[in-house]
Nucleic acid binder design. Sequence first.
DNA 1: TCATCTTATCGTACATCTACGATAAACGAT
DNA 2: ATCGTTTATCGTAGATGTACGATAAGATGA
Lengths: 105, 105
Amino acid sequence: MKIPVLKPAAQDTVTAFDDELANLARALSHPARVAIVRHLAAAGTCVCGQIVEVMPLAQATVSQHLKVLKEAGFVQGEVDGPRTCYCVDPETMKRFQSLVASLPA
Amino acid sequence: MKIPVLKPAAQDTVTAFDDELANLARALSHPARVAIVRHLAAAGTCVCGQIVEVMPLAQATVSQHLKVLKEAGFVQGEVDGPRTCYCVDPETMKRFQSLVASLPA
DNA sequence: TCATCTTATCGTACATCTACGATAAACGAT
DNA sequence: ATCGTTTATCGTAGATGTACGATAAGATGA
C-alpha cells in the first residue's frame, strides 16, 4: 500500500466542478449522442425504435448510446409496455448549459 | 470495396453541428482538461511548467492534455524562448458556449 | 562549446469507447 | 402457452484515451 506524495496544490486543483462538467461533456462527446439528444428534443418524446430508424447505427449501438445519455442524466427512459419511451431531462441540460456558460471566455 | 446500404435518413441525421459540438465536448470530457482551461483563464497566460506545478499529473501527461486542448482550439500556445506560453482562445470558448446554449432545454 | 532548463514527443501498458451480431427479457396479442 | 415485437444486455474485436518514464529538441547562460 503505497501512498504517493502529492504536490502542494494537487488536492484541490481538480474540483467537483471539473468532474461534473467533464462527465456531462463526455456524454455529448460523440456526434451520435448529440444527434440523439437533438432528435429527442425535437420530437418531445420518442420510442427507442424511432431513434434507431433515423440513425445510421445498429439497434444495439443506439441502445448503448441511450444508456450513456441516461447515466449522465441527459435523458430519461420510461418503460411503456414492450417499448421504452425516451425524452430529454431539461434539468440536466440546463445544468450543463449553466456550467458551460460559467466558464470564463 | 463494399458500399453499405444506408437507411433513408442516415445521411443527414448526424449533422455538422453534432460533429462540431462533439469535438469540442470531447476536449472538455476530462476533469484535468477542464481544470487546465479554468486555471489558464484565471491566470490569463501561463507557462507550461506552472500548470504542471499545480496539477497532480506528470509533465508528459499535462503536455498531452494541452495538445488535445490546442487541437480542439480551446487554447493557444506561443513559444517564448525555451518556454511555451499558453492562453485560452476566447473565440473557441464562445463558440462552444453558443453551441451548447443553442441546444433545446 | 557545454551544461542547464523547459517542453514536446516516443514508447508502452492498461483502461475505456465504439461498433456489431447474437441472445435474453419483457410485454401484448392470438 | 406460443408467437411476434421491442429493447436491453452479453460477448467481442478493434480503435482510442490516459498515464508515465525516458528521451529528443530547442533556447539560454556560463
